[in-house]
Design a protein around this nucleic acid. Structure first.
Lengths: 215, 215
DNA sequence: AACGAAAGTTACCAGTAGTAAGTTAGGCGT
DNA sequence: ACGCCTAACTTACTACTGGTAACTTTCGTT
């Protein structure tokens, strides 16, 4: 059912007539559109369309394009939000400053997993690049996660005489590992986040051949 | 320009008339369609359409749907091909059996990178899930890479008393790391494959805090 | 009071995945 | 030998999506 053109009086927002509003204020601003997008994605899955976002926001499509830009920009903005939430959760769980311990790494990874679990569809929407224009643009969530990690790694290991180039490669690698593990974990319902976090921490801390070591 | 319906006598294949062909043979079989898809993707980028694949194969769209199924199935099949090529390259570079060494790991990683570099657009097409139906289906390339790796890890580390569940988590993590590093590496043109492979090997072998260690 | 621009809406275009219905021609039974 | 059956293809369409051009309404300003 298409319902071409007519849009059936949204019950959420008032009047919705064209024309300049009273206080020079926008009826619906960028943040509200992004909120609506998150709601739609959480409810209807990662295949949500721009039109659906517009309807949820009680607005028409061109408004969405005016506020956030095209689909790639929308994914970008949502990726930023998700990345911020991850960073906040990680910061709350542990303090990763110059002294990185195995336990804080474990906390970081588990916090990441839990955020992905809580925003399942959003994660799928953001990491699922759409066409070629967004294919490399998927690096956004990655970039947002990678940049601070790269800085942290550099700060932490600078004393060991490691170059920043290595830190960058490592950061991308670690972020990729976390993203894939998160995705895989979403398909498993028997494994707990802490269990998986523990296992990945072991790999990342001790390396492939190292096992049984403590601390 | 759409050119609705009319399809301008493909110059590649002969006659192309409806009706049952002479020898009970199909005019174009599944493999040939997949070959055409690879050619189109390599030439026109990861945003290639089914229609473009059909034209390249000298065939009409429903034929493509009959031979390989929908877009998700196409990505699936191409993912299998790519994974097989990676596995072949890795097997040629090193022998990963029960004895895994740091050097063989490095060879494995570098072989992976080189295959991705050689099939750049195909890699982007396969890893760039399209909609929600393929979003989790992106796990195909991953699955194909993960299964043997999981088995290898289990075989290798069984002596250490490690469970297979850990091996599975590790396999997904490692594959994710490699995919992300590959993607990032595609955007860099200053770094060589061997250089990056070396760095990632260091991380994966010695772990985060371990540096300066040898072999 | 007239005007200009901001804020929205309607209506459209182009392209894409997928499918239904029609068409041709070889093989098979009588 | 003749006519039906059905495999193999093609034409032509539907449904939907991202994106945009052009029109309309209202407020603030002169």
């Amino acid at each position: 059912m298409k319902q071409t053109g007519v849009m059936g009086k949204s019950s959420t927002a008032a009047s919705r007539r064209p024309g300049r509003p009273v206080g020079g204020q926008l009826e619906v601003d960028r943040e509200q559109v992004l909120d609506a997008a998150e709601r739609v994605i959480a409810r209807d899955g990662a295949g949500a369309s721009i039109e659906a976002v517009a309807v949820e926001a009680g607005v028409t499509k061109p408004i969405v394009y005016d506020r956030v830009g095209g689909r790639a920009d929308l994914a970008d903005a949502l990726a930023e939000r998700l990345a911020d939430r991850m960073a906040a959760a990680a910061a709350e769980a542990v303090r990763v400053d110059t002294t990185l311990t195995k336990e804080s790494l474990r906390g970081f990874i588990e916090a990441n997993l839990l955020v992905v679990g809580r925003h399942r569809n959003l994660f799928l929407y953001v990491t699922g690049g759409t066409t070629e224009q967004t294919a490399l643009g998927r690096l956004k969530l990655t970039e947002r996660s990678t940049t601070p990690m790269s800085a942290a790694l550099t700060a932490w290991r600078t004393g060991f005489g490691q170059s920043t180039e290595v830190a960058e490669a490592w950061a991308f690698g670690i972020v990729g590992m976390l993203q894939m593990v998160s995705m895989w974990w979403l398909t498993q319902d028997q494994r707990s986040a802490s269990e998986v976090a523990e296992q990945i921490t072991d790999l990342l801390w001790h390396g492939l051949p190292g096992s049984g070591r403590e601390s």
